[in-house]
Amino acid sequence: MLSTLYALLFYTASVLMVVGLALKIRKYARTPAPLKIPTTPAPTTRGGVVLRMAREVVFFESLFKSNKWIWLFGYLFHVGLLLVLLRHFRYFTNPVWWWVELIQPFGVYASFAMVAGLAGLWARRFLVERIRYISSPSDHLMLALLLAIGLSGMTMKFAAQTDIVAVKVFFLGLMRFQINELPMHLPLLVHLGLVAILMIIFPISKLLHVPGLFFSPSRNQVDNSRDKRHLAPWAAELEK
């Protein structure tokens, strides 16, 4: 019964996340940028822009220049999250890919980094007057959600172990449209329920910073306005 419910929940969440993100990405891609507005100094070639974006994604370069505390906590959280996510591939692949095996030992520590980063970010929302001022309930809840996901996951790893083999059978089954038994284990049910919520809100929340970063004209445009004429379709209409 509960297994079926969770199966349906994950199917729904996956569809909402994938379709929602696809629609958002399509919207961003189709909305024209009427003017050249890279924040200069900016690269003068496409290759340069790819490098600039890569530095933003891999190192959070602008954030580093901006504020070392936010960078530190943000970076701990995101790198932790990345490793944790990659580690989760073991529940969806059989046999487990070799590189997932490889990061397995780091993945365990990564959850600490992730939780520490989240705690730091959340603390700032209370302690730093300026950030307290700009925080809405949703900003707190988002951190609470991620923290709860992290902590419930760590509970299963370090305290109340769950039947991992059964969990893997459940997810491998879902990928073949079969519903197998999910262990009735509270931390697991909490963890999975929260993950589904995260997936559902992904395309309608500030998690849109993930696609948004790639579509930000101030970062992704080439500084070549004198050499190459840039014209949005609706602006071209004005010239007729």
């Binding site: 700009i134 910073h209 930000s216 004209p217």
Partner: peptide
């Protein structure tokens, strides 16, 4: 596009 993306993308990092 800038207006659309900027309205959506802010995470209130501060």
């Amino acid at each position: 596009r800038a207006f659309q993306v900027y309205l959506d993308a802010c995470v209130k990092c501060g």
